[in-house]
């Protein structure tokens, strides 16, 4: 019961703020709604027994990535609103229609899924308990190479961002 209330409240906030993110005209307000949305997603992770991921979500998304967005929005000091130029060939209504169609399709799949039993995929037994320990154990054993590749990706992205943003090297 308590879990259901928590889930529906969080879901309402997540979807509501997500709608505000894509509909708000002022970009800075949009970024703020994005932060709130991420914080509620983090709360949802806590509900799902993933406290480590929840904290990482706040730390990386809310504390890092969105600050970057806010910086760019403030640096890109717009003299005219970006939506002013309207391309007549662009069919916005069609986009909405397609999105709703995909939503119906995904919803149908999700509901169909309930009629089938959930396959249980027990993970390999781990010598550690606790959420952080388990995630760390998996990262440093089974998923060591993807982990290293992710670090390489971040390094490349860092260098790329510097090269792109610097006026002349």
């Amino acid at each position: 019961m308590g879990q259901a209330i928590a889930f529906y409240t969080l879901a309402a906030f997540i979807l509501g703020f997500a709608v505000l993110v894509v509909t708000t005209k002022d970009t800075v307000h949009s970024v703020l709604f994005l932060v709130l949305d991420f914080l509620f997603v983090a709360a949802l992770y806590v509900l799902l027994d993933a406290p480590f991921l929840a904290v990482i979500q706040v730390l990386v998304y809310a504390g890092g990535i969105v600050v970057l967005y806010l910086f760019v929005v403030m640096l890109v000091n717009l003299k005219r609103p970006p939506e002013a130029h309207h391309d007549p060939h662009r069919r916005t209504k069609l986009g909405l229609f397609l999105a709703v169609a995909v939503l119906l399709e995904l919803g149908a799949i999700a509901v169909y899924q309930t009629t089938r039993p959930v396959l249980s995929v027990p993970g390999a037994p781990m010598p550690v308990t606790g959420n952080t320990e388990q995630v760390g154990w998996l990262l440093y054993t089974s998923y060591l190479i993807p982990f290293e590749i992710a670090s390489m990706l971040l390094l490349v992205a860092m260098i790329g961002a510097i090269v792109l943003a610097k006026r002349e090297l």
Partner: peptide, 19 residues
């Protein structure tokens, strides 16, 4: 279980007030 990370992440949100 993630107390210290919680401190760090909450502190990282504090920057929004100033910006």
């Amino acid at each position: 279980n993630v107390g210290l990370l919680y401190v760090v992440s909450v502190a990282s949100v504090g920057v929004y007030g100033i910006i």
